[in-house]
Protein backbone atom coordinates (compact mmCIF):
# COMPACT_ATOMS: atom_id res chain seq x y z
CA UNK A 1 0.00 0.00 0.00
CA UNK A 2 2.73 2.30 1.04
CA UNK A 3 4.51 1.38 -2.13
CA UNK A 4 1.42 2.23 -4.16
CA UNK A 5 1.14 5.61 -2.47
CA UNK A 6 4.77 6.36 -3.18
CA UNK A 7 4.21 5.53 -6.82
CA UNK A 8 1.05 7.57 -6.95
CA UNK A 9 2.90 10.49 -5.46
CA UNK A 10 5.60 10.11 -8.08
CA UNK A 11 2.94 10.12 -10.80
CA UNK A 12 1.32 13.22 -9.38
CA UNK A 13 4.66 14.99 -9.13
CA UNK A 14 5.38 13.93 -12.73
CA UNK A 15 2.10 15.35 -13.91
CA UNK A 16 2.74 18.54 -11.98
CA UNK A 17 6.22 19.05 -13.44
CA UNK A 18 4.94 18.47 -16.95
CA UNK A 19 2.15 20.96 -16.48
CA UNK A 20 4.62 23.39 -14.98
CA UNK A 21 6.82 23.00 -18.06
CA UNK A 22 3.83 23.69 -20.26
CA UNK A 23 3.03 26.80 -18.30
CA UNK A 24 6.60 28.06 -18.32
CA UNK A 25 6.91 27.54 -22.02
CA UNK A 26 3.60 29.24 -22.55
CA UNK A 27 4.92 32.25 -20.65
CA UNK A 28 7.54 32.60 -23.39
CA UNK A 29 4.72 34.05 -25.47
CA UNK A 30 5.39 37.30 -23.66
CA UNK A 31 9.15 37.34 -23.94
CA UNK A 32 11.10 39.39 -26.48
CA UNK A 33 12.60 37.36 -29.32
CA UNK A 34 16.32 36.66 -29.52
CA UNK A 35 16.49 36.57 -33.29
CA UNK A 36 18.56 39.34 -34.88
CA UNK A 37 16.75 40.54 -37.95
CA UNK A 38 19.81 40.35 -40.24
CA UNK A 39 20.14 41.87 -42.83
CA UNK A 40 17.57 44.48 -41.76
CA UNK A 41 19.53 45.03 -38.58
CA UNK A 42 23.35 45.12 -38.61
CA UNK A 43 25.13 42.31 -36.74
CA UNK A 44 27.69 43.02 -34.10
CA UNK A 45 30.78 40.85 -34.51
CA UNK A 46 33.54 40.87 -31.89
CA UNK A 47 37.00 41.84 -33.17
CA UNK A 48 38.27 38.28 -32.81
CA UNK A 49 35.41 36.84 -34.82
CA UNK A 50 36.74 34.30 -37.33
CA UNK A 51 35.52 35.47 -40.70
CA UNK A 52 37.09 36.37 -44.04
CA UNK A 53 40.84 35.70 -44.13
CA UNK A 54 43.28 38.46 -45.06
CA UNK A 55 47.01 38.74 -45.57
CA UNK A 56 48.52 41.69 -43.75
CA UNK A 57 51.62 43.80 -44.21
CA UNK A 58 54.31 44.58 -41.67
CA UNK A 59 54.74 48.11 -40.25
CA UNK A 60 57.07 48.95 -43.14
CA UNK A 61 54.35 48.15 -45.64
CA UNK A 62 56.00 44.96 -46.91
CA UNK A 63 54.14 41.71 -47.33
CA UNK A 64 54.31 39.83 -44.08
CA UNK A 65 53.77 36.38 -45.53
CA UNK A 66 57.06 34.53 -45.94
CA UNK A 67 55.50 31.53 -47.67
CA UNK A 68 56.54 29.15 -44.92
CA UNK A 69 53.55 26.88 -45.68
CA UNK A 70 52.59 26.37 -42.05
CA UNK A 71 49.06 27.72 -42.58
CA UNK A 72 48.58 25.29 -45.44
CA UNK A 73 49.86 22.43 -43.30
CA UNK A 74 47.59 23.40 -40.41
CA UNK A 75 44.51 23.76 -42.59
CA UNK A 76 42.25 20.79 -41.85
CA UNK A 77 40.43 21.04 -45.16
CA UNK A 78 43.52 21.78 -47.23
CA UNK A 79 42.06 24.92 -48.75
CA UNK A 80 45.25 27.01 -48.70
CA UNK A 81 47.90 26.62 -51.32
CA UNK A 82 50.87 28.85 -52.04
CA UNK A 83 54.30 28.87 -53.60
CA UNK A 84 57.43 30.35 -52.13
CA UNK A 85 59.48 32.83 -54.11
CA UNK A 86 62.36 35.02 -53.11
CA UNK A 87 63.23 38.63 -53.85
CA UNK A 88 66.72 39.69 -54.92
CA UNK A 89 67.59 40.67 -51.36
CA UNK A 90 66.58 37.35 -49.86
CA UNK A 91 63.07 38.07 -48.60
CA UNK A 92 60.72 35.14 -48.97
CA UNK A 93 57.24 35.88 -50.27
CA UNK A 94 54.40 33.90 -51.81
CA UNK A 95 54.46 33.85 -55.59
CA UNK A 96 50.80 32.98 -55.38
CA UNK A 97 48.61 32.53 -52.36
CA UNK A 98 45.26 30.93 -52.86
CA UNK A 99 42.43 30.25 -50.44
CA UNK A 100 39.45 28.27 -51.61
CA UNK A 101 36.71 29.80 -49.46
CA UNK A 102 34.22 27.29 -50.77
CA UNK A 103 36.13 24.80 -48.62
CA UNK A 104 37.23 27.02 -45.74
CA UNK A 105 35.63 26.21 -42.38
CA UNK A 106 36.96 29.36 -40.67
CA UNK A 107 38.59 27.38 -37.89
CA UNK A 108 41.43 29.89 -37.56
CA UNK A 109 44.16 27.25 -37.38
CA UNK A 110 46.03 29.09 -40.14
CA UNK A 111 46.15 32.20 -38.00
CA UNK A 112 47.34 30.14 -35.04
CA UNK A 113 50.07 28.56 -37.13
CA UNK A 114 51.33 31.75 -38.78
CA UNK A 115 54.73 32.69 -37.36
CA UNK A 116 54.68 36.16 -38.87
CA UNK A 117 51.12 37.34 -38.06
CA UNK A 118 50.55 37.55 -41.79
CA UNK A 119 47.37 35.57 -42.12
CA UNK A 120 44.51 36.85 -39.99
CA UNK A 121 40.79 36.20 -39.75
CA UNK A 122 38.54 39.24 -39.74
CA UNK A 123 34.97 39.92 -38.53
CA UNK A 124 33.40 39.68 -41.95
CA UNK A 125 31.30 36.75 -42.99
CA UNK A 126 29.55 38.26 -46.01
CA UNK A 127 31.31 36.16 -48.61
CA UNK A 128 28.41 34.87 -50.65
CA UNK A 129 28.81 34.42 -54.39
CA UNK A 130 26.46 33.16 -57.06
CA UNK A 131 29.37 31.43 -58.78
CA UNK A 132 31.47 29.10 -56.64
CA UNK A 133 34.53 29.88 -58.72
CA UNK A 134 34.46 33.40 -57.29
CA UNK A 135 35.10 31.95 -53.84
CA UNK A 136 38.65 31.12 -54.88
CA UNK A 137 40.66 34.08 -53.58
CA UNK A 138 44.12 34.82 -54.92
CA UNK A 139 46.76 36.94 -53.24
CA UNK A 140 45.47 40.18 -54.72
CA UNK A 141 42.10 39.52 -53.12
CA UNK A 142 43.58 38.64 -49.76
CA UNK A 143 46.31 41.20 -49.26
CA UNK A 144 45.34 44.29 -47.28
CA UNK A 145 47.44 47.40 -46.81
CA UNK A 146 47.75 47.40 -43.01
CA UNK A 147 49.13 45.24 -40.21
CA UNK A 148 45.75 44.05 -38.94
CA UNK A 149 45.48 42.91 -35.34
CA UNK A 150 49.24 42.81 -34.67
CA UNK A 151 50.40 46.33 -35.43
CA UNK A 152 54.02 46.15 -34.22
CA UNK A 153 55.40 42.81 -35.37
CA UNK A 154 58.02 42.62 -38.06
CA UNK A 155 59.33 39.10 -38.58
CA UNK A 156 62.50 40.07 -40.37
CA UNK A 157 63.51 42.34 -37.47
CA UNK A 158 63.66 39.21 -35.32
CA UNK A 159 64.77 36.47 -37.70
CA UNK A 160 68.37 35.86 -38.68
CA UNK A 161 67.85 35.93 -42.44
CA UNK A 162 69.50 38.94 -44.05
CA UNK A 163 67.25 41.15 -46.18
CA UNK A 164 67.63 44.58 -47.72
CA UNK A 165 68.14 47.15 -44.98
CA UNK A 166 68.88 44.49 -42.39
CA UNK A 167 72.21 42.74 -42.91
CA UNK A 168 73.54 39.87 -40.82
CA UNK A 169 73.87 40.81 -37.20
CA UNK A 170 71.31 43.59 -37.34
CA UNK A 171 68.28 41.66 -36.13
CA UNK A 172 67.07 41.98 -32.58
CA UNK A 173 69.52 40.48 -30.06
CA UNK A 174 72.14 39.82 -32.69
CA UNK A 175 75.85 40.49 -32.36
CA UNK A 176 77.74 41.77 -35.40
CA UNK A 177 79.07 39.01 -37.65
CA UNK A 178 82.12 37.14 -36.40
CA UNK A 179 85.42 37.72 -38.12
CA UNK A 180 86.55 34.12 -38.44
CA UNK A 181 90.04 35.11 -39.45
CA UNK A 182 90.95 36.49 -36.06
CA UNK A 183 92.18 34.28 -33.26
CA UNK A 184 91.06 36.66 -30.53
CA UNK A 185 88.33 35.09 -28.44
Amino acid sequence: MRNFLVQLWAVLVGIYTNLRSLWMIFLHSFRPRDTVQYPDEPVYLPPRYRGRIVLTRDPDGQERCVACNLCAAACPVGCISLQKAQTEDGRWYPEFFRINFSRCIFCGFCEEACPTSAIQLTPDFELCEYDRQNLVYEKEHLLISGPGKDPGYNFYKVAGLAVAGKPKGAARNEAPPVDVKTLLP
Binding site: N69, N100, V136, E138
Partner: peptide, 16 residues
Protein backbone atom coordinates in the same frame (compact mmCIF):
# COMPACT_ATOMS: atom_id res chain seq x y z
CA UNK B 1 49.99 12.33 -44.46
CA UNK B 2 50.37 16.08 -43.90
CA UNK B 3 50.10 16.94 -47.60
CA UNK B 4 48.43 20.35 -47.75
CA UNK B 5 46.35 22.38 -50.16
CA UNK B 6 44.45 19.49 -51.74
CA UNK B 7 41.35 21.60 -52.21
CA UNK B 8 43.17 24.74 -53.33
CA UNK B 9 46.09 23.74 -55.49
CA UNK B 10 44.06 23.47 -58.61
CA UNK B 11 41.12 25.66 -57.55
CA UNK B 12 42.27 28.44 -59.89
CA UNK B 13 41.55 26.11 -62.81
CA UNK B 14 38.22 25.01 -61.48
CA UNK B 15 36.68 25.10 -58.05
CA UNK B 16 35.12 21.73 -58.82
Amino acid sequence: HRYSGRTAMRAHLSVH
